[in-house]
Design a protein around this nucleic acid. Structure first.
Lengths: 143, 143
DNA sequence: CTAAAAGTGGACATAGATGTCCAGTATTCG
DNA sequence: CGAATACTGGACATCTATGTCCACTTTTAG
């Protein structure tokens, strides 16, 4: 019941990029996010393919967000990394809903709903704000 | 971000056993829960080893709960199947807490807490009650 | 124009989760 | 007692996620 490594790495990379606010090279991201660089490259490619990141080659190149942080929901990131959230009936039924529930339906729905809610509601803007508020507290001191 | 098959199978098996309320053979469980029997046996063994189920050999034998449903939390079932819930820092930091948070700490904690809460709070008694209320509505009709 | 920086694409390797099988052991019942 | 019923334990097969490597292309800057 964990995020796949791939998805976690994607989130780490995006956290680095969004807190920096501009273009960051794969090498830098790998260092800051403690991700093996060869694999990270592969993950970043997927985020580019999904339209979440822009890539720029050549000296000074790297990766930057392709849209405003507020427009990038965690669920978009998870989709881009082939990470499926709990969806199917936990009891293995093809049709399973409130009208024709399997024995696990109630219990399982609670979990599903809360995970889906989290992934749909949270955006990179939330990550940015958190990091901004908690990681650089000096900036916010009263004069 | 799904439960491992093994854990899901364990939950299915327990749902069958708790709704029946007495000893059920592996063959019956496999049929009702749509789980391949050879693998199910392996899963059931783990639940026995963890003290969640009792096993009885011989004709009329099978598996039954080793304790009252209320005493069996989902998290116990997950532990018995080696299913770890999200725990470590999503950013890869060794130390990461509210005082020294990584950039993902806030976002990640929301998810972790809700999954942990669900698994710790929910017991097989909840599953039993749900099944009892929703799956056999006839029993509950007014006279 | 050319050399260095940096991303791209795909082949290949590995480990752990999933799943099958079979020979053994215990228990019940006639 | 002995035969049928179930559970037990472990060996073995397979597939997917993870991870590495390398040759290639594009872009910048002098």
């Amino acid at each position: 019941m964990n995020l796949p490594q791939t998805a976690e790495y994607a989130l780490r990379a995006l956290a680095v990029i969004v807190t920096r606010g501009d273009t960051v090279s794969a090498e830098t991201i790998a260092g800051e996010a403690s991700v093996p660089q060869p694999y990270l490259q592969k993950v970043l490619r997927r985020l580019v393919a999904a339209g979440i990141l822009d890539a720029r080659k050549g000296p000074g190149g790297g990766f930057s967000l392709a849209k405003p942080p507020k427009k990038i929901r965690l669920i978009d990131v998870l989709n881009a990394t082939d990470t499926s959230l709990p969806d199917a009936c936990a009891f293995g039924w093809g049709k399973c809903d409130a009208k024709h529930p399997c024995p696990l339906h109630g219990t399982w729905s609670e979990l599903k709903d809360s995970i889906h809610g989290w992934a749909s509601r949270t955006t990179l803007e939330d990550v940015r704000q958190y990091a901004d508020a908690r990681l650089t507290p000096l900036r916010r001191r009263a004069p």
